[in-house]
């Protein structure tokens, strides 16, 4: 387990620094709190969606442009729970509401995990080590999956109603913080904590971290990296499915391209974080989302390019990302 003293706190300091710097610029503490909570929630959702992809790239150098498939599929599969059990969502009961969301997450992650297993075997495996083919075939997979969604659920957007308990806002002074955003922050933190513990305190986690750094040496120690990779791919797909459920609840409307639309943000988050670094992906996602919210409020015209500017600034400062992975 990495000693806390050995953790690089500078990127985390950057997040706190950005938030503190935004406070006087925004001026109104209530508006600042609302923006910050919204940014943190968005950051957590980006992290959940992208954390699997960064490990997939780090472990096997696989560029999966089809990762967005699992986000969309996760969201649509969740409908299979949300629609027939709509009464649970409409009930004024925290237990029923959370059970509904929990069940939807369970079904969505199981479906996207299983789909990830098939995707790895059929789409990814034939193109190991061939980046151009990976980009082409995974983009093709994304298009095919979107058309399958159209065929199964129709091409029209599908509305999704938030469960009652997650609707509305908490009022903190003059600030309104949406309940769903608090839920997304808590869930995102729980996912990060589970991944951190899993990667640092379990043998399989050690193998994944070692494999991200030098997969050849992991094999020379007697471990089959491909089996580990399949496991990571399945877990990453399931996490994207979980992200898809959160994203669907946030948007409250489903379209087949909702996963693909997130891919630019997801790639920026994992590049900013350092390819293969889960901690970097976490910090990068939060930075990205906070900056987008603050610039959207302070300088709306700059908001569309704030992500790219952030990426440029970070890569000039740390060319390998916030938490570079030591590659062989």
């Amino acid at each position: 387990m990495t000693d806390l003293k050995q953790i690089d706190w500078v990127p985390l300091g950057l997040i706190i620094g950005m938030a503190l710097l935004a406070l006087p610029l925004v001026g109104d503490p209530a508006a600042w709190l609302t923006l910050t909570a919204a940014g943190l929630a968005m950051g957590m959702m980006i992290f959940v969606m992208s954390s699997g992809l960064t490990l997939v790239f780090g472990l096997m150098d696989v560029i999966n442009f089809g990762h967005g498939v699992f986000i969309s599929i996760g969201a649509y599969v969740a409908l299979l729970v949300f629609v027939p059990l709509a009464a649970w969502g409409a009930a004024d009961s925290l237990v029923l509401n959370l059970s509904l969301v929990g069940l939807a997450i369970l079904v969505a992650t199981a479906a996207t995990g299983a789909l990830g297993y098939a995707f790895e075997r059929v789409v990814i495996r034939p193109v190991y080590g061939q980046h151009l083919k990976q980009i082409l075939i995974t983009t093709g997979g994304l298009i095919v999956a979107e058309q399958l969604i159209h065929a199964l659920w129709g091409a029209n957007p599908i509305p999704l109603r938030l469960p009652e308990t997650l609707r509305g806002s908490f009022l903190i002074g003059d600030a309104a913080v949406e309940r769903f955003r608090v839920f997304a922050i808590v869930l995102g933190l729980a996912v990060f904590a589970a991944m951190y513990i899993g990667l640092n305190r379990t043998r399989i986690g050690l193998l994944i971290r070692a494999g991200v750094e030098n997969r050849e040496m992991v094999e020379a120690l007697g471990y089959d990296i491909r089996k580990i990779f399949i496991g990571v791919f399945v877990a990453g797909s399931a996490l994207a499915g979980l992200g898809g459920v959160l994203w669907a609840l946030y948007r409250q409307i489903l379209v087949a391209s909702m996963g693909m639309e997130m891919m630019v943000l997801i790639f920026i988050a994992i590049i900013i974080g350092g390819l293969g670094s889960v901690g970097g992906c976490f910090a990068g996602s939060i930075l990205l989302a906070l900056l987008a919210n603050y610039t959207g409020f302070l300088m709306p015209k700059l908001a569309p390019v704030s992500n790219i500017l952030l990426m440029l600034a970070i890569l000039v400062w740390r060319p390998q990302g916030l938490y570079p992975v030591a590659k062989r």
Binding site: T2, L206, A210, N214, M217, A220, L221
Partner: peptide, 21 residues
């Protein structure tokens, strides 16, 4: 190997734990 290929992001202990199959 010639370039040692130690896992730089892992601790000394973790490097040895992995090698102990």
């Amino acid at each position: 190997p010639e370039n040692m290929s130690i896992f730089a992001d892992l601790t000394v202990r973790e490097n040895l734990v992995l090698a102990a199959r």
